[in-house]
């Protein structure tokens, strides 16, 4: 018997627009609590009409701060995304893995120019 749980994102956030960080956080918290109990789950984007990276960073990218890559890979699946949105999610996931590998790396490496003329 398949005990995989499906999270219907549009139902959970009450909107087909996956754009805000607040809604992303709501999805993240739901996914996080299920993963903590080791339950396999599918995040369904059926009926979603707009999806942006900000939402995905919070909803899914953030998982890599709480779980190991292998855990996410073995327990989480997604469906209902078009090909270009799958590419977007892939970019978000790759970015998140880099971020959590070295969260402050970019900042520490930055040696931008200074300009005394600006107030």
């Amino acid at each position: 018997m398949d005990d995989r749980i499906t999270i219907k994102v549009a139902d959970l956030i009450g909107s087909p627009l996956c754009i805000s960080a607040e809604d992303g956080q709501k999805v993240f918290e739901k996914v996080e609590s299920l993963l903590k109990s080791g339950k396999p789950l599918t995040i369904s984007f059926d009926r979603v009409t707009m999806l942006i990276s900000l939402f995905l960073n919070v909803a899914i990218g953030q998982l890599y701060g709480s779980f190991r890559e292998e855990e996410v890979r073995s327990l989480v699946q997604v469906n209902g995304l078009s090909g270009d949105d799958m590419e977007l999610l892939k970019r978000v996931v790759d970015n998140a893995k880099k971020y959590y590998a070295n969260p402050k790396g970019y900042d520490a490496a930055w040696h931008g120019e200074e300009d005394e003329d600006e107030q």
Partner: peptide, 19 residues
Amino acid sequence: TEGNTTKTGNHPGGLGLKL
């Protein structure tokens, strides 16, 4: 720069403008 973001909170960002 990809990955750079001033967003607060423990989540990654900095992809929007790159995309």
